[in-house]
Design a binder for these strands. Structure first.
Length: 816
RNA sequence: GCCGGAGUGGCGAAAUGGCAGACGCACGGGACUUAAAAUCCCGAGGAGCCAACGCUCCGUGAGGGUUCAAAUCCCUCCUCCGGCACCA
């Protein structure tokens, strides 16, 4: 009898073995085979079982690929810059670097204890100068091409994190990280011109069939492309024209007023002349509102007449100009032509302020004189619009667009919701933006040969306002690279999403010192063939990475223009919160974190791995339960117990039928595990292995030694990617030398499976009436004959009208 | 409001046009045990009929449709989750 299954005794030994044998080492100097990658994590410290899902799934696939003899690059690194390190520094009075490095150590250790193997020779830590200097180098290139620029605009400011944020980092009006309502501030900041790539970012999505539809839709919505016209209205008494943007130029003759955003530059001119005495006060109130405050007003429309009028270029009509709270300065031109008949907001506004509503689009069942109870926003027939009346909207839009350009009323224009990427952060723990401000030369980039601009270490962290970098005289005070005179260094650092936008290319040969990455090898190894990570990065990371990859592509530095061929989003693991009582993502504040340590001590890492992979399809959310863990453990214990039974079968010929049954079960299991892993369904692959375990159990007493051995050793090989420690240990005890990782991946005997008798379902009028065992490959006539016999009872006295035969599956008899 | 995704036993789920509920959890019964745990074996969607072997009907959120055949495809609706949201 073997001793009881004790993971504590076997797991550490194999973990050391895999590390020592460097199974994960990939030689990227050789031709590419496969590049798989998990999104590199932020080293926040301890990992819980929810984090494990991502890495365990990746390791499972990686081990299968290795067993199949593939040469796989599977690296890991650290997205090591970021605010939590800085906050920890303030709180505990240690340097962010120290905190970060300590966390990296802990997380690496956790990976090891999970039995996860990476090619650690390729490790990247993004807070190291050897990495971040290439952020600076890339910034210089983008500056040269006009893709990086300094601009003044209203930006999102998080008062808690004390930094500006990109649009993408504002969620429901609050800071993505801490939830604090974001304020608008007019600041001069650095931007990357992602909007010039908007169309290519959209178009590229169509060439990514193996990305989840959900992610592509989210990116399309975020980019928010709309085609329309910029139209110039002449404003009475004002020289420069007022430009509005519309996607519905076919409705222009229904424009009964023009509305401006409170922040619109023209608004100031009307302060003195506007008829309402509270005009100025009204405008100031709206301007001071945060986004959140505006939203909380629940869409209530509000506005004031400016006293001024504009002229509709199409029909020469004089319409009043209003200031309205629902017009956004951030989108379009900050001014709109309002068509109450065909826009819900305009309708509500016109109703409230008794402005005229004129029908110009007749929908189904409507005529030119139809009185509307609500806005009709669909397409239809143009009416009340002079020469354009009678056209359907679909035709009117392009025709009137041409008319606009021919008569100089404006231009056709494509606009996007997407804003340029604001990368300045008023924080210490990030890549310094490599720029110097000089009295005489203005903005001067730090030349490449003086990179990296290093983060200074003489920093006092504390709960004070402003970027800590501003308080480092050695950093701020510098000289102008052009004229050599005293100058001030930029103290903002880059958004850490810059770091994660190109790291995958550096992984291929990360120790290169004279370049951002090894262009030759990158040409051979990009794109990433399989990218695994959480859906929370659907917009932020995945769009920035696609953008910078396209930039690098334009620089001729990378092949193709999409970095990730296949994207797999694993679902979250949730568990019941002791605070809210609901299923929540694991977090300390929700009191529902399951830490791996106790679990591994009690049941072993293999149990956690098997349970994690068995919980459900990995792309779906799954609930962690302690009972489920037990089931996974029992499964491994049953596998462990087989080592005794194998001895009992020595030199036995066994029962022929039992032998046959077990062989079929074995080969069916191989096929199913293969098929299921190929479609990323480890859950059903494990179910297939459980069935094989059941079959081996049944056959233990009467199958031959050879057949039992084949079944058992096949099981160990199939099991390896899921439960690597126990499978290696049992493989060794079975008398094999060396690692299962080099033992090859089992293949199934297709011929054996194809000659098995099959069960035919027999239906009569769509209802299952019998099942019959037949030889495979039975033709329609023969199948129909046996089916008629089996279902004779239901055919009596009826006329057989039709027979449908699905080979080896079913016969459907239709009777009257 | 718009856009996506989902809804199947007590629970996690499987089956993507062809035998609904594989596999597992929890549960019930039995074996082993002084006992318990562990382990092993058996049972199980619901309703009804039968002494029994078995048989019948119903059943994948609701309703309709296509089909010999629908969890799966189509239409209408409901609920939940996620994303975007005064985007002109």
């Amino acid at each position: 009898m073997a001793e009881p299954y004790d993971p504590q005794q076997i797991e550490p030994r194999w973990q050391e073995f895999w590390a020592r044998e460097r199974f994960a080492a990939a030689d990227t100097a050789k031709a590419k085979d496969l590049y798989m990658l998990m999104m590199f994590p932020y080293p926040s410290g301890d990992l819980h079982v929810g984090h494990g899902r991502n890495y365990i799934l990746g390791d499972c696939l990686f081990r299968m690929f290795l067993m199949q003899g593939r040469k796989v690059l599977n690296p890991m690194g650290w997205d090591a810059f970021g605010l939590p390190a800085e906050n920890a520094a303030i709180k505990r009075n240690i340097h962010p670097r120290e905190w970060t490095i300590a966390n990296i150590g802990r997380m690496k250790d956790q990976f090891r204890r999970w039995g996860i193997v990476y090619d650690w020779d390729k490790e990247i830590t993004s807070c190291e100068p050897e990495y971040y200097r290439w952020n600076q180098w890339l910034f210089n290139r983008m500056l040269e091409k006009g893709l990086a620029y300094r601009g003044k605009s209203p930006v999102n400011w998080c008062p808690s994190c004390r930094t500006v944020l990109a649009n993408e980092q504002v969620v429901a009006g609050g800071c993505e990280r801490c939830g604090t309502p974001v304020e608008q501030r007019e600041l001069e900041q650095w931007f990357l011109r992602i909007t010039s790539y908007a169309d290519r970012l959209l178009e590229g999505l169509d060439r990514l069939p193996d990305w989840p539809e959900k992610v592509k839709v989210m990116q399309r919505n975020w980019i928010g492309r709309s085609e329309g016209c910029d139209l110039r209205f002449v404003v009475e008494g004002v020289k420069e024209p007022l430009t509005v943007f519309t996607t519905r130029v076919d409705t222009i003759c229904g424009a009964t007023f023009v509305a401006l955003a409170p922040e619109h530059p023209l608004v100031g001119r009307f302060r003195a002349t506007a008829p309402d005495p509270d005009f100025g006060e009204f405008v100031d109130r709206l301007r001071n509102q945060t986004r959140l405050q505006r939203e909380s007003e629940g869409g209530e429309k509000e506005g004031r007449f400016t006293g001024a009028h504009a002229v509709n270029p199409f029909n020469g009509e004089r319409v009043p100009i209003w200031v309205a709270n629902f017009v956004l300065m951030e989108y379009g031109t900050g001014a709109i032509m309002s068509v109450p008949a065909h826009d819900e907001r305009d309708f509500a506004f016109a109703t409230k302020y008794s402005l005229p509503i004129r029908l110009v689009i007749a929908g189904p069942g409507m005529g030119p004189d139809t009185v509307l109870a609500e806005a009709y926003t669909g397409l239809g027939k143009v009416v009340n619009s002079g020469p354009f009346s009678g056209l359907p909207s679909e035709e009117a839009i392009p025709r009137m667009g041409v008319h606009v350009e021919q008569h100089g009323f404006g231009t056709r224009k494509v606009r996007y919701r997407l804003r340029d990427w604001l990368i300045s952060r008023q924080r210490y723990w990030g890549t310094p933006i490599p720029v110097v401000y000089c009295e005489s030369d203005g903005i001067v980039p730090v030349p490449d040969d003086r990179l990296p601009v290093l983060l200074p270490t003489d920093i006092a962290f504390g709960n004070v306002d402003g970027n800590p970098l501003e308080r480092s005289p050695s950093f701020v005070k510098t000289t102008c690279p052009k004229c050599g005179k005293a100058a001030r260094r930029e103290t903002d650092t880059m958004d850490t999403f810059v770091d994660s936008s190109w790291y995958y290319a550096r992984f291929i040969n990360p120790h290169i010192h004279d370049a951002m990455f090894d262009r030759e090898r990158v040409r051979g190894w990009m794109p990433v063939d399989l990218y695994i990570g959480g859906v929370e990065h659907a917009i932020l990371h995945l769009m920035y990475a696609r953008f910078l990859y396209k930039v690098l592509s334009d620089f001729g530095m990378v092949p193709g223009d999409e970095p990730f061929s296949v994207l797999f989003n694993q679902g979250m693991i949730v568990s019941k919160s002791s605070i809210t009582g609901r299923l929540e993502k694991m977090s300390k504040s929700k009191g529902n974190v399951v830490a791996p340590d106790a679990l591994i001590a009690r049941y072993g890492a293999d149990t956690e791995r098997v349970y994690t992979l068995f919980m459900g399809p990995p792309e779906k959310e799954a609930e962690w339960t302690d009972e489920g863990v037990l089931g996974a453990h029992r499964f491994l214990q049953r596998v462990w117990a087989f080592q005794d039974a194998m001895g009992g079968a020595k030199a036995r010929a066994g029962d022929a039928a039992a032998n046959e049954r077990l062989r079929i079960a074995t080969h069916r299991a191989i096929k199913r595990v293969n098929d299921d892993l190929a479609r990323y369904h480890p859950n059903t692959a494990i179910a297939a292995m459980m069935e094989l375990v059941n079959s081996i159990s049944e056959a233990q007493k009467d199958a031959s030694e050879g057949v039992l051995r084949e079944a058992y050793e096949t099981l160990l090989r199939l099991l390896h990617p899921f439960a690597p420690h126990i499978s290696e240990e049992l493989w060794l005890r079975t008398g094999h030398e060396g690692s299962l990782l080099r033992a090859g991946w089992p293949t199934y005997d297709a011929e054996l499976l194809s000659r098995q008798r099959v069960t035919l379902a027999v239906q009569v009028n769509g209802k299952l009436r019998a099942t019959i065992e037949v030889d495979p490959g039975l033709d329609a006539e023969a199948a129909s004959a046996v089916a008629r016999e089996a279902a004779a009872r239901w055919l009596e006295g009826k006329e057989l009208v039709k027979v449908v035969h699905v080979p080896d599956r079913m016969v459907s008899l239709v009777v009257r």
